[in-house]
Design a binder for these strands. Structure first.
Lengths: 174, 174
DNA sequence: TATTGTTATACTCTATAACTATA
DNA sequence: TATAGTTATAGAGTATAACAATA
């Protein structure tokens, strides 16, 4: 927990310039911190995303929420199962479409949402602590613009921090 | 591939402030771009990391390289297997310790390293394109400092660009 | 015929724990 | 006894495909 002298920790030289490695390390550290913070929430961080989406928008069915968050619909089922079992959300019938289930947060769910969101902010602050407040603003703004660029590139919404399939072709050539 | 109007892509409001989600999206976009770029390299991005580590340092055995890169030693075995099968590295006996195997790049491996590294730089540039050159410098510098903080926090080194932690992004924004 | 929600299955990747051969 | 490398296994997580009910 001690940041100790930041200078004492040296990054391996061959990774120092490796943007992918840097990103994965930050994400990893972030996930470590945040998953611990929201550990008692069913579904972890994604459960919180679902809860947040259910609370933020007006009526949305499972598939809409799933697509919005970039979650596979079959994964969404279990996620909502867990949240519903803990009575944080309810599946309500959609009067306009009897196939659909609208995800609504319960009062308990809204309370948890507030609590967990607050914890998350703390965890974020912990990870971004090496940066000054101004630098944090600049950093997250840059991050946001890069994300917009990524999404605009027509890539699929991304299901997780790790998803692409690895390239494994064997070859030997100069 | 057209960045199109960055402004036309709006981030879901409940994810806009979600640092974890932003990071996971950027990493995802980055992995999409880079894994395609180094697709024919055995082991993908981590194969490249191993190759780079083998080339950069003087003699290092598998375990040292694995620890340096934050890769599990059992994963390292297959990684080196693949690289060796493609004749990009060799496992050489360590005269000082008959248990150890020193990973050395072949000439072919060095050629691939240069080629793949160049491709990687291009892919990085593509992802960071929304930022000006100065902003990129500031961004990666901030990223580096955050990583140092994460590593100094005593967290396990994380296994790779695509690391196996669970879920994914997180949170919420209301 | 297409779509929502669900279930079951296969596949990928990681972590764990043995086992060997050395030290 | 501890360590380097290897192997096999179990687990978490995702994607895929099939299915029922409804549009």
């Amino acid at each position: 927990m001690e940041p100790s002298d930041a200078e004492t920790v040296a990054l391996p030289e061959e990774l120092h310039e490796d943007l992918g490695w840097l990103l994965s390390q930050v994400l990893h550290g972030f996930l470590q911190a945040t998953q611990a913070a929201v550990g008692d929430l069913p579904g972890g961080l994604r459960g919180l995303q679902v809860l947040s989406a259910a609370a933020s928008g007006c009526s949305r069915n499972q598939l809409e929420v799933a697509r919005r968050l970039g979650i596979d619909r079959s994964v969404m089922v279990r996620l909502v199962d867990d949240l519903e079992r803990s009575q944080l959300v309810k599946r309500c019938p959609d009067p306009a479409d009897r196939r659909a289930r609208i995800i609504r947060p319960t009062d308990t769910g809204l309370g948890w949402l507030r609590e967990m969101t607050a914890r998350l902010r703390l965890a974020e602050q912990h990870v971004l602590a090496p940066l000054t407040a101004d630098e944090q603003t600049v950093f997250t703004d840059a991050l946001r613009r890069v994300v917009v660029g990524v999404l605009a590139s027509g890539l699929p919404p991304a299901s997780g921090p790790c998803d692409g399939t690895p390239g494994m072709a064997e070859t030997a050539g100069a």
